[in-house]
Design a protein around this nucleic acid. Structure first.
Lengths: 331, 331
DNA sequence: CTGAAAGCGCTTACAG
DNA sequence: CTGAAAGCGCTTACAG
């Protein structure tokens, strides 16, 4: 028996000289009680060092006060910033979040969702691992677990993200506007909605301008991007629309390795605007997707669904923004 | 009432035709039961879609199956990697982790620890926010919450980290070995054990070699490091021992901005060996502290303490390693 | 506002 | 191995 505290709500009630139910109401600040009653109960709780047992309460109320956050890769700065945004939004709500890091493994994702289920989380925020089937959402819904997909989504279901297609198209049009004609897309090797939509936005903008699209598949890894770009012939693309900032960082490293100037010889754009993008040398022209803003929106959406599961599913799209810096040569 | 499932252990017992206590034992695979009994109970649980209620179990057993992980800054790649290491270590244990991101705020840290307490976590992994007083550990101990400090620690208490002083000294000696005499330390503006120890290691190595130490305080921020370094006179230090990789990245950006060559004009070393260090241009000479390894060790230590709180406190130190790449000009 | 009572879903002895 | 019973710390009606 290692219960941290032996003080129960009944002890507080006795100390304050009220009924147990009154003490319970006072502790959660019910407006049905007199001010003094609430104050005296709270004072008693303080004297006794009472600690609310949220899990015992859950057994009766059905609310655990915890949610699950499932991300595909916590070491990707974008998702780390997203996680920080979720945490910040949760702070005022009194909820607390479990974290799961799937590393893009669907097995791990399934396992962690089941553990969260056993922990009776009130809901879950899900950045689906690559290749996740939409049916997963049905499973989770059948479990009675409110769920909001984040960044990567499906056709249906509550979702918070950005318009990947529009963002990618913006970056591409910006390069076209700077006079580039030979523009390649670098990235999008993974099987995710994000990959498909960002690539589609690039393709759309190229088609609009009557230009030929070219896709250089590349994982979200600085090293891989660097070698691909370092191997590009001088007669190759004069501009690269990159899947995300990580790939763009790799592209600049690859260009440096090949002795070519970023921006002047080859223009590069990223996507995400992670913190390092502004501090990179050269500073990265990119699409700001607002990781923290998406995390914040996702948390709010989930709280809304937890409060009223019957509410119609909403989709919140944080508008992408073009941030012009030096890597595109426009400065 | 939104309990996800109405199936209780009693229903499983009835379905399997055994007593409730037998069903409970079977579900956790007690060796006191016959193989067939266990199998038939599990089959019944499967048919009924039974989901173990870990929180209800906690009420009686005292174990919630959850721990808390409090980090000072999740958007710092080092701590993101550490978090991934903790997650990986937890995967096989069946435990799940709450995450708190303090952003170096002691108030936030206190708040989150209290929330974790209400959630009755079995223990907590703590990367103390800057300026945290050692007395916090006593408070947490009084709460009956097993705690392991991670990376940043105090004199007492279970701890998993690295030898910051030795690591910093290694980097400094390496630069001295390359012939540098005018070596400055960049970073360590924060009030943390990590800051003090890394700075001390540099000072130690300089003293050993009879060289004058020079400290350029700088926050762990690429932008700030870049401006400080860009403003250094040509007659200034020929080598910079940086607090961590982030500061080192900033130093290389600052040198590039000033038109000076990293490695040739000014040597730079980092600390942490985050993933980007190897992929940076030029690749960073740094001290590998093994974020994932520390996270793994910390999780194991905590599990040990949870299993037996009476066990004497252990301190696990992951040995730092010098990783020589190009930024020190040694390649 | 109060007080007694039931119940959330488990685990834990304990007598068979 | 089984079965009945008590209890973990709350919330939830409900009658006063």
């Amino acid at each position: 028996m290692r219960h941290a505290t032996p003080v129960r709500i009944e002890d507080v009630a006795r100390e304050a000289g009220v009924a147990r139910s009154t003490a319970a109401l006072a502790l959660k600040g019910s407006p049905r009680l007199r001010q003094e009653t609430v104050a005296s109960v709270r004072a008693a709780a303080g004297r006794l060092g009472y600690v609310y047992d949220r899990l015992a309460a859950r057994l009766r109320s059905g609310r655990s006060g915890a949610i699950g956050l499932v991300v595909c890769e916590i070491t990707n700065p974008f998702y780390a910033e997203l996680t920080a945004g979720v945490q910040a939004a949760l702070e005022s709500s009194g909820l607390v979040a479990f974290l799961a890091n799937t590393e893009e493994s669907r097995e791990r994702q399934q396992l962690m969702l089941e553990r969260f289920r056993e922990q009776r989380v009130d809901g879950v925020l899900l950045v689906p691992a690559a290749g996740t089937r939409p049916a997963l959402l049905d499973t989770v819904a059948r479990w009675g677990m409110p769920c909001v997909t984040v960044v990567r989504g499906f056709r249906a279901g509550a979702h918070a993200g950005t318009d990947h297609r529009a963002g990618s198209a913006m970056a591409t049009r910006h390069l076209i506007g700077l006079g580039h004609r030979h523009i390649a897309y670098l990235g999008a090797a993974a099987d995710s909605s994000t990959s498909r939509q960002r690539l589609a936005g690039y393709a759309l903008a190229m088609r609009e301008a009557g230009l030929a699209a070219r896709h250089l598949p590349c994982l979200s890894d600085i090293g891989e991007a660097a070698s691909i770009v370092a191997g590009l012939p001088r007669s190759g693309p004069t501009a690269l629309v990159c899947f995300n900032d990580t790939v763009a960082f790799g592209a600049t490293v690859g260009l440096a390795r090949a002795g070519r100037a970023v921006g002047r010889d080859v223009a590069v754009t990223g996507f995400d605007d992670v913190r390092a993008a502004a501090q990179w040398h050269p500073a990265l022209t990119t699409i700001r997707a607002g990781a923290a803003a998406i995390g914040d929106a996702a948390a709010r959406l989930l709280l809304e669904r937890i409060a009223d599961p019957a509410t119609p599913t909403r989709r919140v799209i944080v508008a992408p923004e073009l941030v012009i810096r030096s890597s595109c040569g426009a400065a």
